[in-house]
């Protein structure tokens, strides 16, 4: 299974809040191009969350307007990135709007990878109030990020 972030149709619509459980239905809908149906579907969900697709164009704005943010650098040809995505999806579910989850597709936003010297993926950068507080390359388990986020939630 591909996690949410590695689907290109999801990226196009990344400003639409996504609930994990709705992912399969979302895939089908977006593949059919029935965006209106899709939007109606999400309106019915109670708790929404957002995984933001970052590009050079929106990075700085998103960074300065969010308190605590995890940024996952990934690409669809990277298998360990799919594992990382699964972990981030769970974290997104768990932390809801307390933490902003974002992704950088290094094929689409190579400038951002260059800017942060990301030369291996998955790499996850954690920012607090716009400042880089943690950097992990390769795969780290969910409880590592839980400890990190819990320590920085205030």
């Amino acid at each position: 299974m591909y996690p949410a972030g590695s689907n290109s149709s999801l990226i196009l619509m990344s400003s639409v809040p996504v609930k994990r459980g709705a992912f399969l239905e979302f895939l089908v809908f977006s593949a059919m191009g029935t965006f209106s149906l899709c939007a109606a579907y999400f309106k019915e969900e109670e708790k929404m969350m957002e995984i933001i697709n970052l590009t050079e164009a929106n990075f700085d704005t998103v960074l300065t307007t969010n308190n605590l943010m995890l940024v996952d650098f990934w690409a669809d040809w990277c298998a360990p990135c799919r594992l990382m995505s699964l972990v981030l999806d769970r974290l997104a579910e768990q932390y809801g709007d307390q933490v902003t989850m974002a992704k950088v597709n290094v094929d689409q936003a190579l400038e951002l990878a260059v800017r942060f010297h990301v030369l291996a993926i998955p790499t996850v950068l954690t920012f607090k109030k716009g400042k880089l507080i943690d950097r992990q390359t390769g795969f780290m388990p969910g409880n590592f990020y839980m400890d990190l986020l819990n320590a920085n939630l205030t």
């Binding site: 690409a75 990277c78 298998a79 360990p80 094929d107 990878a113 030369l119 993926i121």
Partner: peptide, 8 residues
């Protein structure tokens, strides 16, 4: 991992 990061 060449297959993971080679493309970069």
């Amino acid at each position: 991992c060449a297959t993971c990061d080679g493309m970069l």
